[in-house]
């Protein structure tokens, strides 16, 4: 966050700086399996999406991976098999995650095995969602605010997902309570970045939906490190793949998290 401000100030000061789309000759890496595995505390909250990486120059529709055998096993040894409901998407609608339970994910696909473990943490209540008008470097911006109270004990991790008129905002918002345990929180979900245009920002009349996820440390680490180093923007860190909680030859994550959604209209 600090570096963001620093870069903004620099660009504001030396407004002669200039952005231009350029073409680069980037290597095409061998295709790699990508796993997006979620388990929430809601019905229909269990889904695993298998896709593959694509070339930088290619389009953003990635090939799906069918024919995998996927199961999730809980603490008590109860095994739930997922079924492929559409190409690459595997679900188990009846599997509802419970706080404090550790789930084991097993994926067998094309001779490879991917394993992961995720524990669904305690739910922290999503108290309120509001919109505020903030002054940022000379502009008035409508910003979504998430309110909750951090528990007294450290080790709580959150992810916030924001939709503007049912379109997901392409930003990753994470938080932990290393410095905020026991305090009332007001988290601002800024929409920023070099390619953000007015149409991407919140405008009067927009429907804003925010999901608050409580997730475990490893799942949080995935999103935190993705935000720091894998989104392609000049963030704080050296670019690298996010720290994954998967074992095996795949990118992605397995997250057992609680889910709460609130909706508000921009005044």
């Amino acid at each position: 966050m600090q570096s963001r401000y620093i870069i903004l100030i620099m660009l504001a000061l030396f407004s002669v700086s200039c952005r231009k789309v350029i073409s680069l000759d980037l290597n095409n890496a061998a295709k790699k399996l990508v796993v997006e595995a979620n388990l929430t505390d809601d019905l229909n909250g269990c889904s695993v999406l298998l896709t593959q990486t694509g070339n930088f120059d290619g389009d953003n529709n990635f090939p799906t991976v069918s024919g995998a055998v996927i199961s999730i096993t809980d603490d008590a040894g109860v095994v739930t098999k997922l079924t492929e409901t559409s190409p690459g998407t595997y679900t188990a609608p009846a599997l509802v995650g419970k706080t404090g339970v550790t789930y084991r994910l097993l994926i067998a696909v094309g001779g490879d095995t991917i394993r992961s473990v995720s524990t669904m943490p305690k739910k922290v209540n999503f108290d309120q969602l509001t919109i505020t008008a903030d002054q940022i470097l000379g502009n008035t911006r409508q910003v979504a605010n998430v309110f909750y109270t951090d528990p007294e004990d450290v080790g709580h991790y959150y992810q916030f997902i924001q939709w503007k008129n049912d379109v997901k905002v392409k930003q990753i918002y994470t938080a932990d309570n290393e410095l905020t345990a026991g305090k009332d929180q007001q988290v601002k979900l800024y929409i920023y970045g070099g390619n953000v245009e007015d149409k991407d920002r919140l405008q009067s009349g927009d429907n804003v939906q925010v999901e608050m996820q409580c997730l475990d440390e490893a799942a949080h680490k995935y999103w935190f490190s993705a935000q720091q180093s894998a989104t392609g923007s000049n963030n704080n860190a050296v670019p690298t793949n996010p720290v994954s909680n998967l074992q095996g030859n795949a990118l992605g994550y397995f997250s057992a998290h609680t889910s709460q959604i609130r909706i508000v209209k921009v005044p």
């Binding site: 070339n55 953003n60 990635f62 990753i172």
Partner: peptide, 22 residues
């Protein structure tokens, strides 16, 4: 370090890196 590919994660594009400072 530039990406050698890309993939989706949480309805968003992430970049795939295979080599540091390549």
């Amino acid at each position: 370090t530039f990406p050698a590919g890309k993939y989706r994660s949480g309805d968003q594009i992430l970049f795939y890196y295979t080599e540091r400072n390549g």
